[in-house]
């Protein structure tokens, strides 16, 4: 029990998944690539939630399930809890991780900063950075969606990286 996985291996694998889907398999269809990556995450989340909920009583409502994701599930994945949880009490939850592990070791390719010739280089680089990191967030989004769906909560999950390295996941529960 409690087998450990090398962090750097997971990060390398993640990077490779994203690059092979975006640059080789679906080079011209970023949306399709995103969907495929999200689907892999979904399966992972689906299976992990089965394992991590083994020894606990059933959740009585959505909030309890979300709390489980924030605390125990996140601890299993990233060795830390979600830092901030917000909700509008109408099915939308925002989970904020102030130092998201899978992004904290990434930096933007320097060449992308030189290519901004027409636009202001800094905004150009920023939007490119956002686009590039966005791709890496479909996998964790899929994990959250897979885990919640398996717990009987159909939802849509998106990520927001307006202030890196903090990262927010927005969960919208489908009524």
């Amino acid at each position: 029990m409690g087998r450990e996985v090398s962090e750097s291996c997971v990060e390398s694998l993640m990077t490779e998944i994203v690059s092979s889907y975006c640059n080789h398999l679906y080079a011209n269809k970023p949306e399709l690539a995103a969907r495929r990556i999200e689907a892999i995450g979904y399966q992972v989340g689906h299976q992990l939630s089965e394992r991590y909920t083994m020894d606990r009583p059933r959740f009585s409502d959505h909030l309890e399930a979300i709390k489980f994701i924030c605390k125990d599930f996140w601890t299993e994945l990233f060795k830390k809890q979600i830092d901030n949880l917000k909700t509008n009490h109408r099915g939308t939850f925002v989970l904020q991780d102030n130092q998201f592990n899978w992004l904290s070791h990434m930096s933007i390719e320097p060449s992308s900063q030189n290519s901004g010739s027409v636009q202001d280089p800094s905004t150009m680089a920023e939007s490119k950075a956002a686009q590039a990191t966005g791709m890496y967030l479909y996998f964790p989004c899929g994990i959250i969606r897979g885990a919640l769906s398996n717990l009987g909560i159909p939802c849509a999950v998106s990520a927001d990286i307006s202030n890196l390295p903090a990262c927010s996941f927005v969960i919208r529960i489908k009524a």
């Binding site: 939630s49 089965e50 909920t53 083994m54 606990r56 059933r58 959740f59 398996n150 717990l151 009987g152």
Partner: peptide, 9 residues
């Protein structure tokens, strides 16, 4: 007959 229901229904 005994039953058991997991979190994932």
């Amino acid at each position: 007959v005994y039953g058991y229901l997991t979190n994932t229904k």
